[in-house]
């Protein structure tokens, strides 16, 4: 096993309009097997991925929101959410399905500088 690297997954898309959110989640779960230092960031429309109360029965799409609650089992527990994005969408951390750390865009930008690898979805 090599040196532990810092991986950041940056999520900027709403959950169902494109396949990015689900793909990101699956990549995170698969990559979790490699015991790296993983964090997930939710910015812009990406914050909608965590908006609780999802009901996809009528659109006949799999509801993958419960899987965000399994991230902790996979030792992925650094979840960062952009404060400005929540604000612009009338949301608060209380509207989200998992506990997160709310950071400003500037703070997220700073965290990005500390990463070895950034993956964008």
């Amino acid at each position: 096993m090599g040196e532990v690297k810092k991986f950041m997954y940056v999520n900027r898309k709403a959950p169902f309009g494109t396949i990015y959110a689900l793909e990101s989640l699956e990549v995170v779960l698969i990559a979790a097997a490699f015991d790296q230092d993983v964090s997930m960031v939710f910015m812009d429309d990406g914050v909608y991925q965590l908006k609780k109360g999802v009901d996809t029965k009528a659109i006949e799409v799999k509801n993958f929101q419960p899987t965000y609650r399994a991230l902790d089992d996979y030792d992925v527990n650094k979840l960062y959410v952009e404060a400005e994005a929540l604000e612009a969408r009338g949301l608060t951390a209380g509207d989200l399905c998992v506990p997160v750390e709310v950071l400003t865009r500037a703070q997220i930008g700073k965290l990005m500088e500390e990463q070895d690898i950034l993956l964008s979805f």
């Binding site: 799999k62 419960p66 899987t67 089992d73």
Partner: peptide
């Protein structure tokens, strides 16, 4: 049923 995912073996063992 709870998480909509089949866990990896490492996660299954721990859980």
């Amino acid at each position: 049923n709870e998480f909509q995912i089949a866990p990896a073996v490492r996660v299954l063992t721990k859980a």
